[in-house]
């Protein structure tokens, strides 16, 4: 298809009541309604979801990969931010 015709949409699917919508991929569609229909056909035909969100990819503002060092590296040396320095009392499960 000609790329200059239809915008790209990011698709988010919620698989179960109470879970978050998760990004599953992207597709092209003429407008939001059609994007939902296409997403239904492309991403939920094996009962993957109960709710669909679509967002025009243009509207996603993303972090710049070249900023990776300044954004993410500083936290690597700050292990104390993980709650791993506590002794979990006996009898507490699922921690």
């Amino acid at each position: 298809m000609s790329k200059n015709d239809w915008p790209l949409w990011e698709v988010f699917i919620r698989s179960k009541q109470g879970l978050n919508h998760k990004h599953v991929g992207s597709l092209r569609a003429a407008d939001a309604e059609m994007a939902i229909e296409n997403a239904r056909d492309v991403y939920t035909r094996r009962s993957e979801g109960i709710s669909i969100w679509v967002i025009e990819s243009n509207n996603v503002y993303a972090s710049d990969p070249s900023d990776m060092d300044s954004l993410f590296e500083p936290s690597q040396t700050k292990v104390y931010r993980h709650p791993t320095f506590y002794v979990v009392p006996d009898g507490i499960s699922h921690m």
């Binding site: 298809m1 239809w6 597709l27 092209r28 569609a29 229909e37 296409n38 056909d41 492309v42 035909r45």
Partner: peptide, 12 residues
């Protein structure tokens, strides 16, 4: 299909 998405829709 005219586009991948519509190909899948028609097949469904």
């Amino acid at each position: 299909g005219p586009i991948l998405e519509e190909d899948i829709a028609l097949t469904n």
